[in-house]
């Protein structure tokens, strides 16, 4: 049989931009990140250029993105959340655009690599811990000891709370990575069914290939939901961790 199902090949890193990129190991992942950042900056710059009182489409999109994240920061963190708005906005827009850009055919999904999501998650946790220590000093460590706890339970609960705290970056990074990777694997599985059917069953195969194709189309809609939802969940959790660091409960 000519076609083999290679669903993980799409996540392989290759160098981009020809020999120049190859000489410095500039991968298609790096290129995609640059493109995604350019798209975000382009949306904000071009969207806000008219400065109209009644916004056009691009301006409305830029304003909605800004307003949505601003509201999320204040709702989740409180008034102090305004200080973290630039960070959360960067994080959310990068993840949202990366996830959505990965759904464009032939494009690479940056967030389907654990290295990227784990890097962001570790950054969030280190920032939250730093903010907690900066705001509360050593009193921050009382976070691991709930109030009104019987003293003989303290050693047990402190260990449990520390494990729970350490599990945050792992759950944060794995959730995004697993969702994005699983979606693209399913795309490729159905797509390879199409190719295999057309290759082995002839004319009947072409008719039957409509089935997986319809599933892929439906999956695209679902993946749009997952892409937006996972970017939102990541940003909301970053807000919640910062809230815990600022308020200690």
């Amino acid at each position: 049989m000519a076609t083999t199902i290679d669903v993980m090949g799409q996540f392989k890193l290759t160098t981009a931009l020809g020999p120049v990129g190859a000489s410095v190991n500039f991968t298609q992942s790096n290129l995609t990140m640059v493109v995604v950042c350019a798209l975000i900056l382009g949306l904000l710059h071009l969207g806000m250029a008219p400065r109209a009182v009644v916004p056009g489409r691009l301006q409305a999109a830029a304003e909605m993105l800004y307003g949505f994240v601003h509201r999320m920061c204040i709702d989740q963190i409180g008034e102090e959340g305004k200080a973290f708005f630039p960070f959360i906005f960067t994080l959310f827009s990068f993840l949202l655009f990366s996830n959505l850009f990965g759904l464009v055919p032939y494009q690479f999904t940056v967030t389907s690599h654990l290295a990227i999501t784990a890097g962001l998650a570790v950054f969030v946790i280190v920032l939250a811990t730093f903010v907690g220590l900066r705001t509360h000093g050593l009193h921050f460590f009382s976070y691991f000891l709930p109030e009104g706890l019987p003293i003989f339970l303290a050693p047990l609960i402190v260990v449990v709370e520390v494990i729970s705290y350490l599990s945050r970056p792992i759950s944060l990074s794995f959730r995004l990575f697993a969702n994005m990777m699983a979606g693209h694997v399913v795309f490729e599985v159905f797509a390879s069914f199409m190719v295999a059917m057309a290759a082995s069953l002839g004319a009947i195969g072409y008719v039957m290939a409509v089935g997986p194709f319809a599933l892929d189309v439906a999956m695209t809609g679902f993946e749009l939901l997952v892409a937006a939802l996972q970017a939102y969940v990541f940003a909301v959790l970053a807000c919640m961790y910062l809230h815990d660091a600022v308020h200690l409960h």
Binding site: S167, I170, S171, R175, Q230, V233
Partner: peptide
């Protein structure tokens, strides 16, 4: 949203 979080939360703590 919650359903997507629960499983990962448990597994992550166990792994840590």
């Amino acid at each position: 949203g919650i359903g997507m979080r629960v499983g990962v939360e448990m597994a992550a703590a166990l792994a840590v």
